[in-house]
Design a protein around this nucleic acid. Sequence first.
DNA 1: GTAATACTGTACTTTTTAGTACAGTAAATA
DNA 2: TATTTACTGTACTAAAAAGTACAGTATTAC
Lengths: 225, 225
Amino acid sequence: MYRMVQFIIPPAPKTAKARAGRPKDASKKAGIIRAASSLFMKDGFELTSMEAVAKKADVSKLTIYSHFANKEELFKAIIHQRCDQQAMPECFMALAHLPVEKALIDLGHRLTSLIFSPDSLRLQRVMQAEATRHPQIIKIFFEAGPKRVRVAFGELLAEWVRQGKLRVDDIPVATEQYFSLIKGEMHQKALMLLAPKPTARELNKHIRAAVTLFLSGYQVKAGRS
Amino acid sequence: MYRMVQFIIPPAPKTAKARAGRPKDASKKAGIIRAASSLFMKDGFELTSMEAVAKKADVSKLTIYSHFANKEELFKAIIHQRCDQQAMPECFMALAHLPVEKALIDLGHRLTSLIFSPDSLRLQRVMQAEATRHPQIIKIFFEAGPKRVRVAFGELLAEWVRQGKLRVDDIPVATEQYFSLIKGEMHQKALMLLAPKPTARELNKHIRAAVTLFLSGYQVKAGRS
DNA sequence: GTAATACTGTACTTTTTAGTACAGTAAATA
DNA sequence: TATTTACTGTACTAAAAAGTACAGTATTAC
């Protein structure tokens, strides 16, 4: 039964068919998305009202409903858009020929500045809050964001193993460990508003400690079997 | 102005003064707390209605309002109560004379079975969802739960350092690293309902890997300065 | 120019829920 | 027994928000 889906022809490809009459205003839609984005990120799904979105976008409420079927669809559109923004430039492999320690520290800085950015924290908070009510969205978010980064890191690790710089039995496990150490508990606290943004000094110390521990487990030392 | 608060005498210490008339029924209150607890943990603050609590506790809505001023107070009472339950038996020091590796693995199992328990996951989810609206409660939750456990673990590490089994420069950092590794990303996924409960085998492997990495960084090897 | 569609503003319906009013009953103290 | 307080059930108020109806204006394709 499921196989058949692959052969179904998409129902009427009415793309930019210019269907007679005044066309929709793309700038209106963009304005709605911008307004909704900031409100959803600030207040979450439940506490953001469509009226507030309309007001902030300087648009009639009915205009919103002409672009998005309902509140859920609007929310999904916002999350999709923000996930795309969050994607990291996949330039991990460029680090493959640096000294391992330096590369890991550099990466640590880039990752922390991403995940501690106000936007990322807000998105993460909203996702967690809505986890039970929007499980599909969470999945999209995870695949588009965290997962891609981890895959790229795994490939970098594999390259270093090939170069004989690291000794890693289980790459997925090591990847998870690196990210766990880099995130640490500061991230959890930042999510819960329990800690102010860490200072540059704190971050530096944190990242160095994480990389040191990671390398003590995986770096190839002179004179090993 | 604020200082004065410290000197204000508590307004009439009517403790168990038996203030004439029918006394409040403690079992009603307990029933309300029990019902509210399960509902708040399931649906969070906003989506739990007082009517639902009343119905589940088999009690009149007004009875709830006679025991708790409003919904927020009821919620706070629930969180307090659950925090107290979550506290781990502080028997960490009993592990001080076991072999370090065995102790860390044992501890890892206890910690994971705590934080992956349905109750803990639910509490954590509710806390995260309500973080922005109830910052004071979050603080209480953190001090009563996670923080106490970390302090106890830090003392255990210090004891091992004293015994010459470990070499740890910065105990808070090492503590954070241990907990980060033990929690890993599985916990995050479990919170977001992205992963089913990990199997015993997976947990075992995960904990072993975490402890191995931790010890490779902090265990004293024969023949070191 | 005409028909079709987009957009606006206002007002409305519907639903949900926190919190209250009230009238009555039950259980304790004095 | 009289009084005071706890509890119940029903019905209510008030507010908030999703979504719709409608009447009118603006903008485009044909």
